[in-house]
Design a binder for these strands. Sequence first.
DNA 1: ATGGGATTTGAATCTCAAC
DNA 2: TGTTGAGATTCAAATCCCA
Lengths: 366, 366
Amino acid sequence: MATIKQTAAPLPLNKILAGDCIAEMNKLPEGSVDLIFADPPYNLQLKGDLHRPDNSKVDAVDDAWDQFSSFAAYDRFTRDWLKAAHRILKPNGAIWVIGSYHNIFRVGASLQDTGFWVLNDVVWRKSNPMPNFRGKRLTNAHETMIWAAKSEAGKYTFNYEALKAMNDGVQMRSDWLLPICTGHERLKDENGDKAHPTQKPESLLHRVLVATTNPGDVVLDPFFGTGTTGAVAKRLGRDFIGIEREEAYRKVATKRIDSIRRLDKDALEVSTSKRAEPRVPFGTLVERGMLNAGDKLYSLNGRHSAKVRADGTLVAHDTKGSIHQVGAHLEGAPSCNGWTYWYFKRDGKNVPIDLLRQQIRAEMKH
Amino acid sequence: MATIKQTAAPLPLNKILAGDCIAEMNKLPEGSVDLIFADPPYNLQLKGDLHRPDNSKVDAVDDAWDQFSSFAAYDRFTRDWLKAAHRILKPNGAIWVIGSYHNIFRVGASLQDTGFWVLNDVVWRKSNPMPNFRGKRLTNAHETMIWAAKSEAGKYTFNYEALKAMNDGVQMRSDWLLPICTGHERLKDENGDKAHPTQKPESLLHRVLVATTNPGDVVLDPFFGTGTTGAVAKRLGRDFIGIEREEAYRKVATKRIDSIRRLDKDALEVSTSKRAEPRVPFGTLVERGMLNAGDKLYSLNGRHSAKVRADGTLVAHDTKGSIHQVGAHLEGAPSCNGWTYWYFKRDGKNVPIDLLRQQIRAEMKH
DNA sequence: ATGGGATTTGAATCTCAAC
DNA sequence: TGTTGAGATTCAAATCCCA
């Protein structure tokens, strides 16, 4: 076991450390980091080339850093970096690790063996995954993230209300639907090729950091790559520490993060407070007479209708409750944003009830 | 290691075996089962329902300080039953295991260590999960299933077209949205309480069995519970073997399965891929005079043409060979499906040569 | 500028029977 | 056991191209 150097130096905040993540983490003081986000190598075991049905070749992940000789070798690597990560976390700190079926079971078991306490596994559902071209398996349409506290006793950070607000007022679930990283967000090298084979979308890190850190927290990423964690941390007013072995990735990440603007304090408060916009109860519309008890509302798809009641709830033929609850029930869906689901008739036309909410919000700004 | 009894007795099909799953699996002949579906216990507190293969009881460990040895005991249990499961699977057999973040990482790692080859991890997204009442974590809205072949070389069953058909014509993804088991489907005991704490919905097993078995296959469930696997297997014309220790569960399952009706043969037929269709050599079309030597074929994109030769090969201006080879050469592609690439003229219109193959296949069915 | 159609691309353990 | 060759196989989104 390597000796761990303890330094009295201040944390290297908002810097990218060059080197092996285990060695670099071991240089940092014990209990100094609030959150770790880690996107370790997945240990893919690809055999030959893969072509699409149109005969184009898939640009596979064939980088040396993703190669391990065996599961045992991968497990050793995993346990070593997790142990180093565990040491530098504050007692109330937490970790996120992302992976696929190739590695996530080994990572999860090692996490538990290292003493981490799993809080949730979160499924990143890709809205636009790569299909299965040969029709031999299911489309690999998700990746798994594990969220774990440093220990069972850790009082981890969880901004429940912020996430609920981000989710139209209902509890955030463990499955998150987000697109993969493409377009302008996807960093390119000087040849116009992708700068990194597995760049994660900023939206994913945004949700992770809003959920489990506060402004001013220190977020460390031991597999920094092109710096998505650093970019989002900076924008959200968190401090970051990146560790990356490859100079090419460090270079791209540095340039990327330099161009990010830190959100000002107001914006940060808004993004983490209950709602970006002031909450308007549906009942307010009834109180104000914009809608009246007994009025009929119609669903977006025209298949359902409901009647407004005096207390701001709805009643349909076999159910009653909030605009969201009734919509969800009628659609057989887990949740429903009633504001965009329900319409009322005005001059024979369908008008979304959200229009009335917008009128109220506009008034509130005066 | 316990000695494995080999019996010449026929498989105990469509029966529920009473006893420990490891002991019972060890009584079955090697390589005799097509699919295993397993919903193992995951109470890491080991409150008395974990047993070693020799039926000795694993010491209950619930002290927080001994959490690691508890994981170790669970790993032993997992490896033992997975090893027994591996032995009884046919070479082309496969396994499904379902779990949550409490146990699925350990199960997944043990699967890989046992020699199983992971094909997909599948997320069961619950449309109606239990909310997180205390607002301290994300709503635990999914469970994870791992689908794995007996070995990397195994030619596992996957009814790609059937699943695609079930999914409105686009290939099935790795995230499945299904409601939890409630209502009439949820079995009750004589007191009206739920008969089993974790009864799985039949819809989940339906999709699993349609996807990865064929009618007549043998499906084994080592943690049978109230027999969802058996009920769906029977309805879908598969044979099942259940193993269950608890008499109360066996009783409920027996009654349940007795009341299930097997679907008739027509209802069991699913869409199949072209791969399953009989092979028709291109030369057959020439032999039969559907095309003649000297006829001209035109490419899909209209850029190329070739002449049919008497032996069922094609010749273009600088190449000759099979319909596939010539197509690939002309397109500069690594491969080409000649059946969909080449067209011939009939009454001035372009007709794909695949139409002729379909005629021959239709005749072959008579 | 705008819109419609063609092209490109993404963490992938991606064929199989016959010889 | 390995090699050969027939032939089966893709979805959502961003971008590019051209009218």
